[in-house]
Computed example of a mutant assay.
Amino acid sequence: MDDGAGRSWDPTLYAGSAAYYATGRVGYPAELAGALAGALGWDGTGRLLDVGCGPGSLTLLLAPWFAETVGLDADADMLREAERAAAAAGVRAVRWRQLRAEELPADLPPVDVVTFAQSFHWLDRPRVAATVRDMLTPGGVVVHVGATTHEGIDPDGPLPWPRPPRAEIAQLVRRRLGPARRAGQGVVTGTPGDEDAVYRAAGFTGPQRLEVPGRVVERSLDEVAASVHSLSSSAPHLFGDRFAEHDAELRALLARASPSGRFSEQMRSISLRVWRPV
């Protein structure tokens, strides 16, 4: 499907990875919601739109701060995982829409807050930024969440358990898929940057900057394996009928790295950038 601007959506981008995404990505901490609610005066009213919501990781964390929440994603499997997570958490004031961000505003009503978390770089950024600006109510904001949830960074000090052997994992993936980083039916040639310029060109001012400190998390062997399968560059469909073989080799590598099956990772801090219409 072409969005009219020469950009084609690849529905295989995360094919087969939705369940692994929900398990393998480290959840956003409660402190993230608290920092935003305190800075922006959220009080349980208003409407939130989470664009590129995936399995609802951020959507469900923020939903209690709003009267109505909409999670939007192009991937039906991701939304099924989000629905399951919402039911398990007992969150009812949220609905899910399978739409591309480029199809906004669709039939959605005005919103008070729009969030992008690990999704903006996949989009036609100028088009989507301009569209969501027009969707905001007076006083509304866009929150850009900068986070890495699939793996950690170099730790500040000793960790309770071994770190996942990320370099060896990357080597394993390259050996099976080749040196070019895969993404759906194509390859990744680089991640677009200069997001601040995109927001300003779309008519936003800011940003107001907030930060949530990083933390050390414990991860199981299953969670680390799922974190690898959650990536577009190593999604299950890329391995074809050899995925089970790849998964077994990955698990053997992890078992050698930590015979107990327990790992620790230092997660990087999360940056929150709040943009307001001019």
Rank of each mutant, 00 (worst) to 15 (best):
S230G: 00
A180Y: 08
L48D: 01
F204C: 05
V217T: 04
R200G: 00
F263S: 02
L231W: 02
R125T: 01
L99I: 01
L250Y: 07
R92Q: 13
R125N: 01
T23G: 06
R125Q: 05
S220T: 15
R166A: 13
A252R: 12
A37C: 04
H144C: 04
P277G: 08
R182G: 13
T131D: 03
V145K: 00
D124A: 14
R166S: 14
D222S: 14
R242A: 15
V143K: 02
P207Q: 04
P55Y: 02
A252E: 15
V114P: 06
G157Q: 03
E245A: 01
V216H: 11
L32F: 01
G203T: 10
T137F: 02
R256I: 08
L250T: 12
L250M: 10
A130R: 14
A106W: 07
G152W: 12
D75M: 05
T189E: 15
R200S: 01
R175G: 14
G152Y: 07
W161M: 12
T148F: 09
E102T: 11
A22M: 04
G186C: 00
L36M: 12
T45P: 05
P105L: 03
L36K: 09
L221Q: 06
E211D: 04
F243A: 09
E103N: 09
Y20C: 04
R7K: 09
W96F: 14
S260T: 15
V128L: 02
D107I: 10
A106V: 01
R276G: 09
W9N: 12
D43C: 08
D50A: 05
A235D: 13
S227Q: 08
P207Y: 02
E68G: 03
D43P: 07
A167C: 00
V132Q: 08
S220M: 03
R175C: 08
T12S: 10
T23K: 13
D222G: 04
L159G: 11
R133I: 15
G206F: 09
P213E: 02
G190R: 05
R80F: 06
L159A: 10
S17K: 04
A255P: 06
R181G: 03
S232V: 03
R256M: 12
P160F: 06
D73N: 02
G203W: 03
P164T: 10
A87S: 08
Q171S: 11
